[in-house]
């Protein structure tokens, strides 16, 4: 381990998963993601990451550009293959699954919210929301769907095409879509990155609400300390390793932690 991180507050050096007092929605055990095959070109995007994401918790993954936070999320969500290590969603170990298995897993166990281009332009808002269910040929639970739609506050715009919605509205549709299939875990990749602060706050409140009220597990990649402050817990990545974590984060503490990380890396 890099000794320069040792003095940091909340620094973690353990590679052991968090204690199993809570059920785990997603888990990575000693995950490596290596690009390049010769010694010279070898880049460790993830270098032995082990982390548990508890059920019903909102976790933010932070870190500077190139720290591996997006790669970690992609590996957890079954979008990217790990070089070494184990990844599970719920009690399903997903590394080693073939494409069909992964696709089925994503459809039933995972929800996604991307930074942009979340919606299919040919489908209406409502059709976009039910997309994962429709793909799997499942019928939506009407009461649940009504509740989700009510919570995201889209009632009168359900028949609109994405081009007729504002950026914030589009992102709320994406949230509803992620939630409607009741996935094991929702992965959100910079969900507010493209929004103004007010729309961003709406989306974050909704995510918070879905954790508190519906017991949804959310893992969010972000570089925005304000967004991270909505989470129950923040994990900090640098150079492909988890270098710190923080429970009950506030915007200021996260900001400080980021500064310390930057300082430690000599930026």
């Amino acid at each position: 381990m890099n000794s320069e991180y040792n003095h940091l507050e909340n620094a973690v050096t353990t590679t052991e998963p968090a204690s199993a007092t809570h059920a785990v929605a997603a888990r990575a055990v000693d995950v490596w993601k290596v690009y390049g095959n010769s010694e010279q070109t070898r880049v460790n995007a993830l270098a032995g990451v082990s982390v548990d994401f508890e059920q019903g918790k909102f976790t933010a993954i932070m870190g500077p550009s190139g720290s591996g936070k997006s790669t970690l999320m992609h590996c957890l969500a079954g979008l990217d293959e790990v070089t070494q290590g184990e990844v599970s969603i719920g009690d399903l170990r997903i590394n080693g699954l073939n494409d069909a298995g992964l696709t089925k897993m994503r459809r039933s166990k995972v929800g996604f919210i991307f930074q942009q281009f979340n919606l299919l332009p040919t489908l209406t808002a409502k059709e976009n929301i039910t997309l994962p269910l429709d793909i799997g040929g499942r019928k939506p639970d009407q009461a649940w769907m009504d509740l989700v739609i009510k919570t995201v506050g889209l009632g009168d715009r359900l028949g609109h095409k994405p081009t007729e919605l504002s950026g914030g509205q589009q992102q709320r549709v994406a949230c509803a879509r992620a939630l409607v299939a009741r996935p094991e875990v929702i992965f959100a990749d910079e969900p507010t990155g493209n929004l103004d602060s007010r729309s961003g706050a709406d989306v974050l409140s909704f995510l918070r609400q879905s954790v508190d009220e519906f017991g949804q597990t959310i893992v969010m990649v972000t570089h925005d300390p304000h967004a991270a402050s909505y989470a129950d817990r923040v994990i900090f990545l640098a150079d492909g390793k988890i270098v710190a974590h923080m429970d009950q984060p506030t915007e200021d503490r996260v900001l400080d932690q980021m500064k310390n990380l930057d300082a430690a890396r000599g930026v």
Partner: peptide, 16 residues
Amino acid sequence: TRELGLLRAVGLTRAQ
């Protein structure tokens, strides 16, 4: 490409 990626991400199989 983007759309296809999104569809695949939310669970559209290759056959679909």
